[in-house]
Every structure is written in structure tokens, then in C-alpha cells.
Amino acid sequence: MLEFQGSTILFTLINLVVLYLFLRKFLFGRVNAILEQRAQKIQQELETAQQERTEAQELKVNYEQQLAQARDEAERMVADARLRGQRLYESKVQEAQKVSQRIQKEAEGQIAQQRAEMLQGVRNEVTSLALMAAEKVACHTMDTQQEKAMIDAFLLEVGEHA
């Protein structure tokens, strides 16, 4: 009752070999190919992502550099402008001071001149008055140069005392 049957053993061997060849091609082959493709794809995507990240990092560093540069530039420009403005302001102030000084001087000069003129005028008046008074006193015209000079000297003396 328990017997090994040669044909059954052979048939089973053939069956299993056929099944193996079939499954290797259509089941394991296909599925493993898909798995491999997916693994490859994932690997590729990871690499791409890594690369992109590196690139982004580089770009970021670049931008940051540029930004820092721009900020520096801006600061420099502001400082420059401020300096220039300061200078301009100072020069303007100086100029204005100069102008005002000049005007003041001129004014002072004018005032001095006017005063001198006025004094001269008064002196002349006084001289002529004195001359007239002396003429009246002496009944004599005093218009020689010598007399005039004498009176002027006298008046100067008086003026100095006054």
C-alpha cells in the first residue's frame, strides 16, 4: 500500500520545474523588477533632492552674501551722504559766517566813515563858526591858510579834551 510510484515522482518533478520556471518569470521576475525599479527611483530621487538641497544651500549663501554686500553698500552710501551733507552744511555755514562778517565789517566801515564825515562836517561848521566869531571879534577876515590851520589845531586840542 505504501509504494513509491516512479511515474508520479517524475511527473511531480516536471510539474515543479515547470511551475518554478513559470513563477520565476512571471511572478518573482516581475515583482522583483518592480521592486528594484522603485528602489532605484527612490535612490535617484534622494540623490536629486540632496543635490537640490546643496544647490539651494549655495544659492542661500550667495544671496546672503549679496544681501550683506548690498547692506554694506547702503550703509556706506548713507555714511557718505551724511558726510557730504555735513561738509556741505559746514561750508555753507562758513560761507554765511564770512558773508555776515563781511557785511558787518562793511557796515562798521560805513558807520565809521559816516561818523568821520559827520565829525568832519561838524568840525568844519565849528571852524567856520569860530572863524566868523573871531572875525566879528577882530573885525577882520580870517581866511588865510595859516589862520585856518591854527584854529583847526586849537579845535583838535579841544576835541581831544571833550
Binding site: L2, E3, F4, Q5, T8, I9, L10, T12, L13, L16
Partner: peptide
Amino acid sequence: KDISVTASL
């Protein structure tokens, strides 16, 4: 269940 099949295996 057939011993010939398992023998083949």
C-alpha cells in the same frame, strides 16, 4: 498525501 509526491519533493 501521496508519498511519491513528497518523495519527489
